[in-house]
Design a protein around this nucleic acid. Structure first.
Length: 545
RNA sequence: GCCCCUGUAGCGCAAUGGAUAGCGCAUUAGCCUCCGGAGCUAAUGGUACAGGUUCGACUCCUGUCAGGGGCACCA
């Protein structure tokens, strides 16, 4: 039983093509796909279509010739035990048909090894740092942060599962202008509480929570100069608790204040200066980011002597590499998209590759309540927080909802819809499949015995279900390539659908003992995969609902 | 003005450049003596517009139109 039949078939195709001499000027990857419809076999390759132009022959003719080679090679190899047919179909696709035994063996592996059989070492232990949320500690988390939190958390789960060494980090903006404004806001509210009637500037933090902090600061006799830090610390505690309640964990809270104290910012500047990427103009210090494709050069030290946000950020990203990470993933809001080129430029200035950093722009989520949009603004304080969403719809539904759309797309989130415990809310569809399986397993007196014979699973729905299970790993790889875990939610819905269809047509607990045993094994396999998928999404796997 | 995201069935959304574009809601007609009907089976309905690349385009490129977001020596 080959470990990875997909790879073996690709190797085989490559071997035959080399023998035919067709690969001479061909540089593309030879791919093997799951056909859209299982009428077209179990694996499919479009290589004849790809080679058609290069070799100036019709795809069908090429495919026909290649198939003869493939069949001969298969007969000679171990694959002959697993492959029933290789055929040219359609416009020139070459389709591989596998023996059912292959699928039975795969299912058996899932049942006996559990989640072990689903994981992989695709990542090869590569050290990855995912930085996400990183919201300023100047107010509670908004829904935009919530979406980032879930996407980042889930992406980290998936990457760990397929063999990456992943750490999650929150970059904490605990000094600078925004903290000063926060402190000033508290100070002003404090004076207001003490009876002074002062004008409250528009760019100050307007939310009611500032009053709460002011009262607390007053009772603890916090000095005016410390108000900013005091408020930030207070808010950070709230943020941390919200994230915990949302099931989002961080390995590291990276403090900008500590970074500033460490001298790493100055060291980074020194290096850039040596390389000739810094210059002075108009009294400010500039980074020559245009060298690396940015639209314009960027200021890192303003003419008044203060650093811009970019300054510590450049040092911060370089520090990530110095800590041993070779792949950085940043989740940013859409307001940061203009920022990508600057940071990538700084990476390149230090000698790293552009692709060592993947920036995922997490588009905004718009929250509706009964079709009415809820505006969000931290300053104005009229915003819906992660806490409110959690209280209303629960962590499971909220997480699934945030993950249901491609991360780069806008997301409309109606609280009333998410609250409905109905089919409109797909998380219940998936959890229901899981609970249903658990219920069958509970009510069954029969056991999966050692003489389990899966070959009695002959029905179309049974084989479809097994094949669907095997797509789990492919799905996780798509998540890795796209840096987007949302495909997993799509997959789980499809798998649940395959299960519900099977369930409706065939009884698991049958008169026939052997068949019952095999079907119990089948649904146990489905349970393992659904459970594993939900776990990666950070969603509970209820045995009863 | 420049940049990013999005236009797919009445509504909400799918579709690693592949074969007959899928699913839910809604509407209509069915399926529980029996493992959970929060389920299943059908019917209806289709890629904003104009070019281009490709053997093949919802997918990539150019333009147009429409919606959302962003464009500081702020963070």
């Amino acid at each position: 039983m080959p470990k990875d039949i997909q790879k073996e078939l690709v190797d085989l195709v490559t071997h035959c093509l080399t023998e035919l001499g067709w690969l001479a000027n061909f540089s593309e990857k030879i791919s093997l796909e799951f056909p859209t419809d299982n009428r077209f076999g179990d694996f499919s390759t479009n290589i004849a279509l790809k080679l058609s132009k290069l070799l100036k022959r019709s795809p069908q003719a090429l495919a026909a010739e290649l198939v003869v080679y493939l069949q001969r090679e298969i007969t000679k190899s171990k694959l002959t035990a697993l492959v029933t047919q290789v055929k040219v179909e359609g416009v020139g696709f070459i389709n591989f048909y596998l023996k059912e035994n292959y699928f039975y063996e795969k299912l058996k592996l899932i049942i006996t090894q559990g989640k072990e059989a689903l994981s992989s070492n695709a990542g090869g232990g590569r050290k990855v740092l995912i930085e996400f949320v990183s919201a300023n500690p100047t107010g509670a988390l908004s829904v935009a942060h919530a979406r980032q939190a879930v996407v980042g958390d889930c992406l980290a789960n998936v990457l760990s599962f397929i063999g990456f060494d992943v750490k999650r980090e929150y970059y904490l903006n605990d000094e600078g202008n925004q903290i000063n404004i926060l402190g000033a806001s508290v100070n002003l509210r404090l004076k207001e509480l003490n009876g002074q009637n002062l004008e409250f500037p528009e760019n100050y933090y307007q939310g009611d929570y500032i009053y709460d902090i002011a009262k607390l600061a007053d009772s603890q006799k916090i000095k005016d100069a410390d108000l900013g830090n005091f408020a930030a610390g207070y808010i950070l505690k709230i943020i941390k608790q919200e994230l915990i309640d949302f099931g989002v964990k961080f390995d590291c809270w990276y403090s900008q204040k500590d970074l500033a104290k460490s001298g790493k910012v100055g060291q980074a500047f020194e290096q850039l200066k040596k390389k000739g990427f810094l210059y002075e103009q108009d009294g400010a210090l500039w980074f020559k980011s245009t060298e690396f494709g940015d639209d314009k050069d960027r200021v890192i030290i303003k003419s008044d002597g203060a650093q811009t946000y970019l300054a510590p950020d450049i040092a911060y990203h370089e520090d990530k590499f110095n800590r041993g990470f070779s792949w950085l993933i940043n989740l940013w809001g859409p307001d940061h998209h203009g920022y990508i080129n600057r940071i990538k430029a700084s990476l390149e200035a230090f000698g790293h590759k552009k692709d060592d950093l993947s920036v995922v722009i997490v588009q905004l989520a718009t929250i509706f309540r009964n079709g009415q949009e809820i505006q969000m603004s931290t300053r104005r304080g009229q915003y819906i927080t992660l806490r409110e969403v959690l209280d209303e719809v629960g962590a499971d539904a909220a997480r699934f909802f945030f993950l249901m759309r491609r991360t780069s797309s806008h997301l409309d989130f109606d609280l009333e819809v998410a609250k409905k415990q109905s089919a409109e809310n797909p998380v219940f569809y998936v959890q229901y499949a899981h609970a249903r399986i658990c219920s069958i397993l509970r009510s069954s007196a029969a056991q999966i015995t050692d003489d389990l014979d899966l070959s009695v699973l002959k029905e179309k729905e049974e084989l479809n279900l097994i094949k669907k299970l095997l797509e789990f790993n492919t799905t996780l790889n798509i998540c890795r390539v796209t840096c987007d875990p949302y495909m997993l939610t799509v997959y789980l819905q499809e798998l649940s659908e395959s299960f519900h269809k099977f369930y409706d047509l065939h009884r698991v607990l049958d008169q026939d003992k052997a068949l019952t045993c095999a079907r119990l094994a089948l649904i146990k396999g489905v349970k393992i995969v659904i459970s594993c998928g939900l776990e990666l999404l950070g969603i509970t796997q209820p045995e009863k609902m």
